[in-house]
Design a protein around this nucleic acid. Sequence first.
DNA 1: TCTGGGGTCCTAGGACCC
DNA 2: TCTGGGGTCCTAGGACCC
Length: 428
Amino acid sequence: MMARDVHGMYAMVDCNNFYVSCERVFDPALEGRPVVVLSNNDGCVVARSPEAKALGIVNGEPVFRRKSFFVRHGVRMFSSNYALYGDMSARVMQVLSRFSPDVERYSIDEAFLCFPALARDRLLETAGRIRLAVRQWTGIPVCVGMARTKTLAKLANHTAKRMPGGGNCLLDDAAEIEGCLARTPAGEIWGIGRRHARFLHEHGIETALDLARRPREWVRRHLALPGLHTVMELNQEPCIPFERNPPPVRSLMCSRSFGTEVADLGSLEEALSTRVQQAAAKLRAKGMAAGAVQVFVETSRFRSEAYAGDSGCAVLPAPTSFTHDLNAAALQVLRGIYRPGFAYRKTGVLLLDLISEGCRQLHLFDAPVVREGPRKALMAAMDRVNAVHGRGTLVLASSGFGAKPWHMRQTRRSPRYTTRWAELPVVR
DNA sequence: TCTGGGGTCCTAGGACCC
DNA sequence: TCTGGGGTCCTAGGACCC
Protein backbone atom coordinates (compact mmCIF):
# COMPACT_ATOMS: atom_id res chain seq x y z
CA MET A 1 0.00 0.00 0.00
CA MET A 2 1.30 3.42 -0.86
CA ALA A 3 2.04 6.00 1.76
CA ARG A 4 -0.83 8.25 0.79
CA ASP A 5 -3.28 5.44 1.41
CA VAL A 6 -2.08 5.09 4.96
CA HIS A 7 -1.69 8.71 5.94
CA GLY A 8 -4.13 10.33 3.59
CA MET A 9 -7.77 11.21 3.84
CA TYR A 10 -10.67 9.45 2.26
CA ALA A 11 -13.60 11.37 0.90
CA MET A 12 -16.88 9.58 0.37
CA VAL A 13 -19.01 11.37 -2.19
CA ASP A 14 -22.61 10.18 -2.29
CA CYS A 15 -25.35 11.56 -4.54
CA ASN A 16 -28.48 12.69 -2.72
CA ASN A 17 -31.54 10.57 -3.60
CA PHE A 18 -29.70 9.73 -6.79
CA TYR A 19 -32.46 8.29 -8.99
CA VAL A 20 -34.91 11.00 -7.98
CA SER A 21 -32.27 13.65 -8.60
CA CYS A 22 -31.67 12.26 -12.12
CA GLU A 23 -35.38 12.60 -12.89
CA ARG A 24 -35.41 16.14 -11.52
CA VAL A 25 -32.49 17.28 -13.66
CA PHE A 26 -34.64 16.83 -16.75
CA ASP A 27 -37.98 17.78 -15.21
CA PRO A 28 -37.58 20.73 -12.85
CA ALA A 29 -41.31 20.68 -12.16
CA LEU A 30 -40.55 17.75 -9.85
CA GLU A 31 -38.61 20.04 -7.56
CA GLY A 32 -40.26 20.41 -4.14
CA ARG A 33 -42.77 17.61 -4.79
CA PRO A 34 -42.82 14.08 -3.38
CA VAL A 35 -41.19 11.81 -5.96
CA VAL A 36 -40.39 8.10 -5.81
CA VAL A 37 -38.57 5.79 -8.20
CA LEU A 38 -39.71 2.18 -8.37
CA SER A 39 -37.77 -1.06 -8.69
CA ASN A 40 -37.91 -3.12 -11.85
CA ASN A 41 -41.36 -4.41 -12.62
CA ASP A 42 -42.68 -1.32 -10.81
CA GLY A 43 -42.64 -3.45 -7.67
CA CYS A 44 -41.49 -1.36 -4.77
CA VAL A 45 -39.98 1.96 -3.83
CA VAL A 46 -36.19 2.19 -4.25
CA ALA A 47 -35.60 5.94 -4.12
CA ARG A 48 -37.47 8.81 -2.46
CA SER A 49 -37.24 12.57 -2.54
CA PRO A 50 -37.04 14.29 0.87
CA GLU A 51 -40.72 15.20 0.49
CA ALA A 52 -41.58 11.53 -0.03
CA LYS A 53 -39.53 10.57 3.03
CA ALA A 54 -41.37 13.21 5.02
CA LEU A 55 -44.66 11.51 4.07
CA GLY A 56 -43.39 8.38 5.79
CA ILE A 57 -42.79 6.38 2.63
CA VAL A 58 -40.08 3.79 3.27
CA ASN A 59 -37.65 2.11 0.94
CA GLY A 60 -38.65 -1.36 -0.21
CA GLU A 61 -42.33 -0.68 0.35
CA PRO A 62 -44.52 -2.46 -2.25
CA VAL A 63 -46.31 0.14 -4.33
CA PHE A 64 -49.61 -1.68 -4.74
CA ARG A 65 -50.28 -1.47 -1.01
CA ARG A 66 -49.95 2.30 -0.91
CA LYS A 67 -51.35 3.25 -4.28
CA SER A 68 -54.24 5.31 -2.97
CA PHE A 69 -51.99 7.01 -0.44
CA PHE A 70 -49.62 7.98 -3.22
CA VAL A 71 -52.44 9.35 -5.35
CA ARG A 72 -53.90 11.28 -2.44
CA HIS A 73 -50.61 13.00 -1.71
CA GLY A 74 -49.70 13.68 -5.32
CA VAL A 75 -46.63 11.45 -5.19
CA ARG A 76 -45.02 11.27 -8.64
CA MET A 77 -43.92 7.73 -9.46
CA PHE A 78 -41.27 6.69 -11.96
CA SER A 79 -40.27 3.27 -13.25
CA SER A 80 -36.51 2.86 -12.97
CA ASN A 81 -34.64 4.21 -15.97
CA TYR A 82 -31.19 2.67 -15.74
CA ALA A 83 -30.10 3.98 -19.12
CA LEU A 84 -30.49 7.48 -17.68
CA TYR A 85 -29.06 6.74 -14.22
CA GLY A 86 -26.04 4.91 -15.60
CA ASP A 87 -25.21 7.77 -17.92
CA MET A 88 -25.66 10.40 -15.21
CA SER A 89 -23.46 8.33 -12.91
CA ALA A 90 -20.67 8.35 -15.51
CA ARG A 91 -20.92 12.14 -15.70
CA VAL A 92 -20.64 12.50 -11.93
CA MET A 93 -17.61 10.20 -11.82
CA GLN A 94 -16.04 12.21 -14.62
CA VAL A 95 -16.32 15.38 -12.57
CA LEU A 96 -14.89 13.67 -9.47
CA SER A 97 -11.84 12.53 -11.41
CA ARG A 98 -10.84 16.18 -11.77
CA PHE A 99 -10.34 16.48 -8.03
CA SER A 100 -8.15 13.46 -7.42
CA PRO A 101 -6.33 10.89 -9.53
CA ASP A 102 -7.51 8.32 -7.01
CA VAL A 103 -11.21 7.68 -7.50
CA GLU A 104 -12.85 4.40 -6.56
CA ARG A 105 -16.33 4.06 -8.03
CA TYR A 106 -18.06 2.23 -5.24
CA SER A 107 -21.62 2.07 -6.59
CA ILE A 108 -23.79 3.79 -9.15
CA ASP A 109 -24.07 6.86 -6.91
CA GLU A 110 -21.04 6.74 -4.62
CA ALA A 111 -17.29 7.09 -4.91
CA PHE A 112 -14.31 7.17 -2.58
CA LEU A 113 -11.61 9.71 -3.33
CA CYS A 114 -8.17 9.67 -1.79
CA PHE A 115 -6.40 12.89 -0.80
CA PRO A 116 -3.03 13.56 0.76
CA ALA A 117 -3.25 14.76 4.34
CA LEU A 118 -4.02 18.45 3.96
CA ALA A 119 -4.87 21.00 6.59
CA ARG A 120 -8.41 20.90 7.90
CA ASP A 121 -9.59 24.04 6.16
CA ARG A 122 -8.06 22.94 2.86
CA LEU A 123 -9.94 19.64 3.06
CA LEU A 124 -13.23 21.32 3.83
CA GLU A 125 -12.68 23.78 1.03
CA THR A 126 -12.04 20.90 -1.38
CA ALA A 127 -15.24 19.20 -0.25
CA GLY A 128 -17.14 22.39 -0.95
CA ARG A 129 -15.68 22.70 -4.42
CA ILE A 130 -16.57 19.08 -5.22
CA ARG A 131 -20.19 19.65 -4.28
CA LEU A 132 -20.41 22.82 -6.29
CA ALA A 133 -18.77 21.37 -9.39
CA VAL A 134 -20.89 18.22 -9.47
CA ARG A 135 -24.03 20.26 -8.97
CA GLN A 136 -23.15 22.79 -11.65
CA TRP A 137 -21.89 20.40 -14.28
CA THR A 138 -24.33 17.50 -13.85
CA GLY A 139 -27.26 18.94 -11.91
CA ILE A 140 -26.89 16.28 -9.22
CA PRO A 141 -26.61 17.29 -5.53
CA VAL A 142 -24.02 15.38 -3.49
CA CYS A 143 -22.73 15.23 0.08
CA VAL A 144 -19.09 14.74 1.04
CA GLY A 145 -17.76 12.96 4.11
CA MET A 146 -14.07 12.84 4.96
CA ALA A 147 -12.05 10.76 7.40
CA ARG A 148 -8.95 8.59 7.71
CA THR A 149 -10.74 5.31 7.06
CA LYS A 150 -13.42 4.37 4.56
CA THR A 151 -15.83 3.33 7.29
CA LEU A 152 -15.49 6.69 9.05
CA ALA A 153 -15.76 8.51 5.71
CA LYS A 154 -19.07 6.71 5.16
CA LEU A 155 -20.16 7.78 8.62
CA ALA A 156 -19.06 11.36 7.91
CA ASN A 157 -21.11 11.32 4.74
CA HIS A 158 -24.08 9.95 6.62
CA THR A 159 -23.67 12.81 9.10
CA ALA A 160 -23.33 15.37 6.31
CA LYS A 161 -26.61 14.16 4.81
CA ARG A 162 -28.41 14.94 8.05
CA MET A 163 -27.05 18.42 8.52
CA PRO A 164 -29.68 20.97 7.60
CA GLY A 165 -28.36 22.86 4.60
CA GLY A 166 -24.99 21.22 5.23
CA GLY A 167 -23.31 18.81 2.95
CA ASN A 168 -19.74 18.43 4.19
CA CYS A 169 -18.44 16.65 7.22
CA LEU A 170 -14.85 16.04 8.24
CA LEU A 171 -14.23 13.51 11.01
CA ASP A 172 -10.55 13.76 11.97
CA ASP A 173 -10.61 14.72 15.62
CA ALA A 174 -10.75 11.94 18.23
CA ALA A 175 -13.25 13.68 20.50
CA GLU A 176 -15.46 14.62 17.58
CA ILE A 177 -15.40 11.07 16.24
CA GLU A 178 -16.33 9.73 19.65
CA GLY A 179 -19.29 12.08 19.86
CA CYS A 180 -20.45 11.08 16.41
CA LEU A 181 -20.13 7.37 17.20
CA ALA A 182 -22.09 7.85 20.42
CA ARG A 183 -24.97 9.40 18.47
CA THR A 184 -25.02 6.69 15.79
CA PRO A 185 -26.90 3.41 16.25
CA ALA A 186 -24.57 0.46 15.60
CA GLY A 187 -26.82 -0.82 12.83
CA GLU A 188 -26.22 2.32 10.75
CA ILE A 189 -22.52 1.62 10.45
CA TRP A 190 -21.27 0.46 7.04
CA GLY A 191 -20.70 -3.29 7.33
CA ILE A 192 -23.21 -3.92 10.11
CA GLY A 193 -26.32 -5.39 8.55
CA ARG A 194 -29.66 -6.35 10.03
CA ARG A 195 -28.53 -9.66 11.48
CA HIS A 196 -25.48 -8.27 13.19
CA ALA A 197 -27.44 -5.26 14.44
CA ARG A 198 -29.95 -7.56 16.12
CA PHE A 199 -27.19 -9.68 17.58
CA LEU A 200 -25.43 -6.58 18.96
CA HIS A 201 -28.68 -5.29 20.44
CA GLU A 202 -29.20 -8.63 22.19
CA HIS A 203 -25.79 -8.15 23.76
CA GLY A 204 -26.49 -4.63 24.94
CA ILE A 205 -24.49 -2.92 22.20
CA GLU A 206 -26.61 -0.06 20.92
CA THR A 207 -24.34 2.64 19.55
CA ALA A 208 -21.39 2.64 17.20
CA LEU A 209 -19.28 3.74 20.16
CA ASP A 210 -20.33 0.65 22.17
CA LEU A 211 -19.23 -1.45 19.23
CA ALA A 212 -15.94 0.41 18.71
CA ARG A 213 -15.01 -0.31 22.34
CA ARG A 214 -15.69 -4.04 22.34
CA PRO A 215 -12.64 -6.29 22.79
CA ARG A 216 -11.19 -7.31 19.45
CA GLU A 217 -11.30 -11.07 20.15
CA TRP A 218 -14.98 -10.85 20.99
CA VAL A 219 -15.69 -9.03 17.73
CA ARG A 220 -13.58 -11.48 15.75
CA ARG A 221 -15.40 -14.42 17.28
CA HIS A 222 -18.94 -13.13 16.77
CA LEU A 223 -18.79 -10.89 13.72
CA ALA A 224 -15.94 -12.66 11.91
CA LEU A 225 -13.13 -10.95 10.03
CA PRO A 226 -15.18 -8.30 8.19
CA GLY A 227 -16.70 -7.25 11.52
CA LEU A 228 -13.25 -6.90 13.06
CA HIS A 229 -12.17 -4.71 10.17
CA THR A 230 -15.20 -2.50 10.69
CA VAL A 231 -14.36 -2.05 14.37
CA MET A 232 -10.72 -1.27 13.60
CA GLU A 233 -11.78 1.30 11.03
CA LEU A 234 -14.08 2.95 13.57
CA ASN A 235 -10.92 3.40 15.63
CA GLN A 236 -9.16 5.15 12.75
CA GLU A 237 -7.09 2.12 11.72
CA PRO A 238 -7.42 1.67 7.93
CA CYS A 239 -8.12 -1.98 6.97
CA ILE A 240 -10.35 -1.80 3.94
CA PRO A 241 -8.11 -1.16 0.95
CA PHE A 242 -8.63 1.62 -1.54
CA GLU A 243 -9.23 0.08 -4.95
CA ARG A 244 -8.55 2.48 -7.73
CA ASN A 245 -8.73 -0.32 -10.29
CA PRO A 246 -11.43 -2.73 -9.19
CA PRO A 247 -10.48 -6.38 -9.57
CA PRO A 248 -12.17 -8.13 -12.51
CA VAL A 249 -15.64 -9.47 -11.75
CA ARG A 250 -15.89 -13.17 -10.95
CA SER A 251 -19.51 -13.73 -11.87
CA LEU A 252 -22.21 -11.99 -13.84
CA MET A 253 -25.94 -12.31 -13.34
CA CYS A 254 -28.94 -11.38 -15.40
CA SER A 255 -32.47 -11.96 -14.10
CA ARG A 256 -35.90 -10.36 -14.05
CA SER A 257 -39.23 -10.98 -12.41
CA PHE A 258 -42.04 -11.57 -14.87
CA GLY A 259 -44.85 -9.11 -15.45
CA THR A 260 -47.22 -12.03 -14.89
CA GLU A 261 -47.03 -15.63 -13.74
CA VAL A 262 -45.52 -18.11 -16.17
CA ALA A 263 -46.20 -21.83 -16.03
CA ASP A 264 -45.33 -23.20 -19.47
CA LEU A 265 -41.85 -24.27 -20.44
CA GLY A 266 -41.98 -22.45 -23.77
CA SER A 267 -42.42 -19.02 -22.22
CA LEU A 268 -39.77 -19.77 -19.59
CA GLU A 269 -37.37 -20.67 -22.37
CA GLU A 270 -38.07 -17.40 -24.16
CA ALA A 271 -37.56 -15.38 -21.01
CA LEU A 272 -34.39 -17.21 -20.03
CA SER A 273 -32.97 -16.93 -23.53
CA THR A 274 -33.53 -13.18 -23.42
CA ARG A 275 -31.54 -12.99 -20.15
CA VAL A 276 -28.75 -15.17 -21.50
CA GLN A 277 -28.34 -12.92 -24.53
CA GLN A 278 -28.15 -9.87 -22.29
CA ALA A 279 -25.64 -11.55 -20.01
CA ALA A 280 -23.50 -12.68 -22.95
CA ALA A 281 -23.40 -9.14 -24.32
CA LYS A 282 -22.27 -7.83 -20.93
CA LEU A 283 -19.66 -10.54 -20.78
CA ARG A 284 -18.23 -9.57 -24.16
CA ALA A 285 -18.28 -5.90 -23.24
CA LYS A 286 -15.93 -6.81 -20.38
CA GLY A 287 -13.74 -8.86 -22.69
CA MET A 288 -14.40 -12.01 -20.69
CA ALA A 289 -15.55 -15.59 -21.21
CA ALA A 290 -17.56 -17.86 -18.90
CA GLY A 291 -16.61 -21.38 -17.90
CA ALA A 292 -19.98 -22.35 -16.45
CA VAL A 293 -23.63 -21.37 -16.62
CA GLN A 294 -26.07 -21.50 -13.72
CA VAL A 295 -29.81 -21.17 -14.27
CA PHE A 296 -32.56 -20.64 -11.74
CA VAL A 297 -36.34 -20.43 -11.70
CA GLU A 298 -38.46 -19.28 -8.83
CA THR A 299 -42.11 -18.89 -7.84
CA SER A 300 -43.28 -15.95 -5.75
CA ARG A 301 -41.97 -15.85 -2.20
CA PHE A 302 -45.04 -13.90 -1.15
CA ARG A 303 -47.74 -16.39 -2.06
CA SER A 304 -49.05 -19.05 0.21
CA GLU A 305 -48.84 -21.79 -2.43
CA ALA A 306 -45.86 -24.11 -2.36
CA TYR A 307 -42.66 -22.26 -3.09
CA ALA A 308 -40.38 -23.62 -5.78
CA GLY A 309 -36.88 -22.29 -6.23
CA ASP A 310 -34.73 -24.56 -8.35
CA SER A 311 -31.38 -24.13 -9.96
CA GLY A 312 -28.92 -26.12 -12.00
CA CYS A 313 -25.49 -25.63 -13.45
CA ALA A 314 -23.65 -26.65 -16.61
CA VAL A 315 -19.90 -26.62 -17.03
CA LEU A 316 -18.95 -25.64 -20.57
CA PRO A 317 -16.44 -27.71 -22.53
CA ALA A 318 -14.33 -24.56 -22.78
CA PRO A 319 -14.84 -20.99 -21.57
CA THR A 320 -16.80 -18.96 -24.11
CA SER A 321 -18.60 -15.69 -24.71
CA PHE A 322 -20.43 -17.03 -27.77
CA THR A 323 -24.13 -16.39 -27.19
CA HIS A 324 -25.35 -19.50 -29.00
CA ASP A 325 -23.31 -21.87 -26.84
CA LEU A 326 -24.24 -20.15 -23.59
CA ASN A 327 -27.88 -20.13 -24.66
CA ALA A 328 -27.92 -23.82 -25.57
CA ALA A 329 -26.31 -24.78 -22.26
CA ALA A 330 -28.71 -22.61 -20.26
CA LEU A 331 -31.83 -23.94 -21.99
CA GLN A 332 -30.70 -27.49 -21.37
CA VAL A 333 -30.30 -26.79 -17.67
CA LEU A 334 -33.73 -25.16 -17.60
CA ARG A 335 -35.39 -28.25 -19.10
CA GLY A 336 -33.82 -30.28 -16.33
CA ILE A 337 -35.04 -28.14 -13.44
CA TYR A 338 -38.46 -27.13 -14.81
CA ARG A 339 -41.43 -28.59 -12.96
CA PRO A 340 -44.90 -28.41 -14.53
CA GLY A 341 -47.67 -27.01 -12.40
CA PHE A 342 -45.78 -24.15 -10.78
CA ALA A 343 -46.56 -20.48 -11.36
CA TYR A 344 -43.08 -19.12 -11.85
CA ARG A 345 -42.35 -15.46 -11.24
CA LYS A 346 -38.72 -15.20 -12.15
CA THR A 347 -35.85 -16.74 -14.04
CA GLY A 348 -32.25 -15.80 -14.50
CA VAL A 349 -28.79 -16.85 -15.50
CA LEU A 350 -25.51 -16.62 -13.65
CA LEU A 351 -22.28 -16.78 -15.63
CA LEU A 352 -19.48 -18.27 -13.54
CA ASP A 353 -15.77 -19.01 -13.66
CA LEU A 354 -15.14 -15.88 -15.66
CA ILE A 355 -11.76 -15.37 -17.22
CA SER A 356 -10.28 -12.78 -19.49
CA GLU A 357 -10.96 -13.60 -23.14
CA GLY A 358 -7.30 -13.18 -23.98
CA CYS A 359 -6.01 -15.90 -21.70
CA ARG A 360 -8.62 -18.57 -22.09
CA GLN A 361 -7.84 -22.16 -22.88
CA LEU A 362 -9.43 -23.32 -26.13
CA HIS A 363 -10.94 -26.75 -26.48
CA LEU A 364 -8.68 -29.35 -28.00
CA PHE A 365 -11.25 -30.67 -30.48
CA ASP A 366 -13.06 -27.45 -31.29
CA ALA A 367 -11.04 -26.55 -34.40
CA PRO A 368 -10.51 -23.08 -32.99
CA VAL A 369 -8.80 -21.64 -36.05
CA VAL A 370 -11.78 -22.38 -38.25
CA ARG A 371 -14.59 -21.43 -35.88
CA GLU A 372 -13.30 -18.60 -33.72
CA GLY A 373 -13.06 -15.99 -36.49
CA PRO A 374 -16.63 -16.18 -37.82
CA ARG A 375 -18.06 -16.49 -34.30
CA LYS A 376 -16.24 -13.39 -33.12
CA ALA A 377 -17.37 -11.48 -36.20
CA LEU A 378 -20.97 -12.56 -35.69
CA MET A 379 -20.98 -11.48 -32.04
CA ALA A 380 -19.30 -8.18 -32.88
CA ALA A 381 -21.96 -7.51 -35.53
CA MET A 382 -24.78 -8.36 -33.13
CA ASP A 383 -23.35 -6.17 -30.39
CA ARG A 384 -22.88 -3.31 -32.80
CA VAL A 385 -26.42 -3.50 -34.16
CA ASN A 386 -27.86 -3.62 -30.65
CA ALA A 387 -25.66 -0.75 -29.50
CA VAL A 388 -26.77 1.50 -32.35
CA HIS A 389 -30.44 0.53 -32.63
CA GLY A 390 -31.17 -0.46 -29.05
CA ARG A 391 -30.97 -3.66 -27.05
CA GLY A 392 -33.15 -6.43 -28.45
CA THR A 393 -32.97 -5.27 -32.08
CA LEU A 394 -31.09 -8.38 -33.19
CA VAL A 395 -31.82 -11.48 -31.10
CA LEU A 396 -31.81 -15.25 -31.28
CA ALA A 397 -35.09 -16.83 -32.34
CA SER A 398 -35.24 -18.66 -29.01
CA SER A 399 -36.31 -15.44 -27.27
CA GLY A 400 -39.60 -15.68 -29.13
CA PHE A 401 -41.63 -13.68 -31.65
CA GLY A 402 -45.14 -13.24 -30.35
CA ALA A 403 -46.55 -11.38 -27.39
CA LYS A 404 -44.41 -11.75 -24.29
CA PRO A 405 -46.63 -11.76 -21.24
CA TRP A 406 -43.55 -12.40 -19.09
CA HIS A 407 -42.07 -9.00 -19.94
CA MET A 408 -41.61 -6.84 -16.90
CA ARG A 409 -44.03 -4.06 -16.22
CA GLN A 410 -42.57 -0.63 -16.67
CA THR A 411 -45.38 1.78 -17.15
CA ARG A 412 -43.90 4.98 -15.83
CA ARG A 413 -40.45 5.26 -17.31
CA SER A 414 -39.19 8.72 -18.16
CA PRO A 415 -37.45 9.27 -21.52
CA ARG A 416 -33.86 8.09 -21.90
CA TYR A 417 -32.91 11.75 -22.23
CA THR A 418 -29.17 11.31 -22.61
CA THR A 419 -28.74 8.05 -24.52
CA ARG A 420 -31.39 8.00 -27.26
CA TRP A 421 -31.59 10.60 -30.02
CA ALA A 422 -35.34 10.17 -30.24
CA GLU A 423 -35.80 10.93 -26.54
CA LEU A 424 -33.75 14.10 -26.13
CA PRO A 425 -35.33 16.61 -23.79
CA VAL A 426 -37.24 19.35 -25.62
CA VAL A 427 -36.80 22.97 -24.63
CA ARG A 428 -39.70 25.28 -25.31
C1' DT B 1 -53.55 -8.48 -9.53
C1' DC B 2 -49.33 -6.21 -7.86
C1' DT B 3 -43.21 -7.35 -3.25
C1' DG B 4 -35.98 -5.62 -7.59
C1' DG B 5 -31.46 -6.83 -9.35
C1' DG B 6 -26.58 -7.56 -9.02
C1' DG B 7 -22.52 -8.15 -6.66
C1' DT B 8 -18.63 -9.62 -2.86
C1' DC B 9 -16.47 -12.19 0.84
C1' DC B 10 -16.21 -15.54 4.65
C1' DT B 11 -16.99 -19.81 7.00
C1' DA B 12 -18.36 -24.38 8.07
C1' DG B 13 -18.48 -28.75 6.71
C1' DG B 14 -18.07 -32.57 3.59
C1' DA B 15 -15.26 -35.19 0.26
C1' DC B 16 -11.13 -36.95 -0.53
C1' DC B 17 -6.38 -38.22 0.07
C1' DC B 18 -2.34 -40.17 2.38
C1' DT C 1 -13.59 -55.40 21.96
C1' DC C 2 -10.54 -52.27 19.94
C1' DT C 3 -11.23 -48.27 14.29
C1' DG C 4 -6.17 -41.83 13.52
C1' DG C 5 -4.82 -37.58 12.22
C1' DG C 6 -4.05 -34.05 9.32
C1' DG C 7 -4.09 -31.74 5.10
C1' DT C 8 -6.45 -29.65 0.84
C1' DC C 9 -10.15 -28.46 -2.00
C1' DC C 10 -14.77 -27.43 -3.08
C1' DT C 11 -19.44 -25.96 -2.27
C1' DA C 12 -23.48 -24.15 -0.11
C1' DG C 13 -25.18 -20.91 2.63
C1' DG C 14 -25.07 -16.78 5.08
C1' DA C 15 -23.58 -12.31 5.89
C1' DC C 16 -22.82 -7.89 3.87
C1' DC C 17 -23.18 -3.93 0.25
C1' DC C 18 -25.71 -0.75 -3.17
